[in-house]
């Protein structure tokens, strides 16, 4: 978008080509954007950092609540952000159950949930969690950089966040999660 020829002054040919060059740049940029559609996911920037300090009350009375101090036991754990009102969370329940059966400790953070709804949810889908903290104002969710439900974080034995999985864990993704958990042992 530049101006051009001048009377009595020799026209600089390069300026005339500038608009076309800029436009070509635009086309190239947009082509990249079209071929590699941007993911709508927002990655947490907390990977590799220690789990922030928090302490959540139990979401249902018979299962203990959750605090960051629960994550320094030496073994990696899976931190699952979920809610009974979230449809994909019900869809990933069998995969969480499979992970629990292979000996993984899973802790839940229930986002904006009620006891009654959670009981109904567990009656329908089973309960894979060792501990469930109630996060009624999404505070822990923000603290670890999660932007929706469900999301799963792998926290290693020293309380460092090692991996984030966004969305529900599909059956074919269970292996990946297991491998990442193994990696987190070192």
């Amino acid at each position: 978008m530049s101006d051009t020829s001048v009377p009595l002054v020799k026209t600089s040919g390069l300026t005339l080509w500038l608009p076309l060059a800029l436009f070509s740049g635009f086309v190239a940029l947009v082509l990249v954007g079209l071929l590699r559609p941007a993911s709508r996911e927002v990655q947490s920037a907390m990977i590799g950092k220690p789990l922030p300090a928090f302490s959540l009350k139990p979401a249902i009375p018979d299962i203990p609540g959750l605090a960051h101090t629960n994550f320094v036991g030496g073994k990696p754990r899976l931190l699952n952000i979920f809610a009974s009102w979230c449809v994909p969370c019900a869809a990933e329940a069998p995969q969480l159950e499979a992970l629990r059966r292979s000996g993984i400790e899973i802790d839940g953070v229930a986002i904006r949930d009620t006891q009654a709804d959670l009981r109904l949810f567990f009656a329908r889908n089973g309960n894979p969690y060792s501990r469930i903290g109630a996060d009624n104002v999404s505070a822990v969710q923000f603290a670890i950089g999660s932007s929706g439900v469900p999301e799963s974080f792998i926290v290693d034995g020293r309380g460092i966040i090692r991996y984030q999985h966004i969305g529900d864990i599909r059956p074919e993704q269970v292996e990946i999660i297991l491998a990442r958990l193994k990696e987190a042992e070192h």
């Binding site: 001048v6 082509l31 079209l34």
Partner: peptide
């Protein structure tokens, strides 16, 4: 999106190319 992008490339690119080739003969 791809279809419109092709149209854009033809029309805008074509017009700007024409401009680059011809504008030197249009005095200011």
């Amino acid at each position: 999106g791809t279809f419109i992008l092709v149209l854009l490339a033809i029309y805008i690119g074509g017009a700007l190319l024409l401009f680059a080739l011809r504008a030197a003969t249009v005095t200011e």
